[in-house]
Design a protein around this nucleic acid. Structure first.
Lengths: 143, 143
DNA sequence: ACTATATATTTGTATTATACAAGCATATTA
DNA sequence: TAATATGCTTGTATAATACAAATATATAGT
């Protein structure tokens, strides 16, 4: 594969990974990448608490209108719930519901099982180090 | 971030990475001048030589019709060229052109520069190891 | 207090990538 | 040589997205 340079190797592997990961996400749930978006949105609300549309859009780097629709869809399914901000009548605050927490937990378990199976031959040390390096990459990715 | 388990950490970081990478690649914030699919297709043809639509579709895990359209668009731009397989009149073989190679090279350089800048504080050893682990992850990702 | 402006969100519209199905050309097989 | 299979293209539908317009509420200037 003639990747003489480590950075070149990393670029190549990450690009490949993104393509394969996108396929996985869409093949398991034939509903486009709504499942992925749902997972991320539920995870965000679960981890950081209630948030408004604008904050979610900024977090995901998507247009506000896109998040407005995603949130409305999840609200419709009962996975998140809307409340108004007493301090500002324009704002809708979304929180994860019990049902949403259940779904998130189930989704997460399935994803972790998949990763566990893929990484089953890695040593504990390798997994630790990989996680740490990925975290550093992500930190560097923020502009 | 309370990720007690290394696999949980890896899942979290990879999911985050995919979201951010998708944003970077989106038209206004893309790293290079070529959209993601174009980059991948040119890279494939450059690295492995002429290929038919079906093979490309399988490689990218996309529908044949989707690849047919992507290839037609790149052909239109002069980045790849179509030739017929003398052994089978139904087949179109696509090859990268000189123009395609130029654009691929330019785009790749820009991507590498970006990664180099993000990873500039990593040791050579860390980068080597990260590339190796990513490669193993990708191998495990093939089902 | 009143009006103009700013902000948060929703809704309308266009674009793009995709899958699936139908169609067409060429190969292969019975 | 007719029937079937294969490779690709084209027609159509769907989903995610961005941008623009509309609506509701808040804030600032006078």
């Amino acid at each position: 594969m003639k990747k003489q340079d480590a950075v070149e190797r990393i670029e190549y592997e990450l690009t490949t990974f993104i393509r394969r990961a996108a396929y996985k996400d869409s093949s398991e749930n034939k509903i486009g990448n709504l499942e992925r978006a749902t997972y991320l949105l539920l995870r965000e609300l679960d981890e950081f608490g209630p948030a408004r549309v604008k904050a979610l859009a900024e977090s995901f780097k998507l247009d506000i209108s896109t998040l407005s629709r995603q949130a409305a869809a999840l609200e419709e399914k009962g996975l998140i719930v809307r409340s108004s901000d007493p301090a500002d009548g324009r704002v809708s605050l979304f929180s994860i519901t019990e049902l949403g927490k259940q779904k998130l937990k189930k989704d997460k378990r399935m994803r972790l099982e998949r990763y566990q199976s893929m990484l089953k031959e890695w040593t504990g040390e390798e997994k630790e180090l990989f996680g740490t390096l990925l975290n550093r990459l992500n930190e560097a990715f923020i502009d």
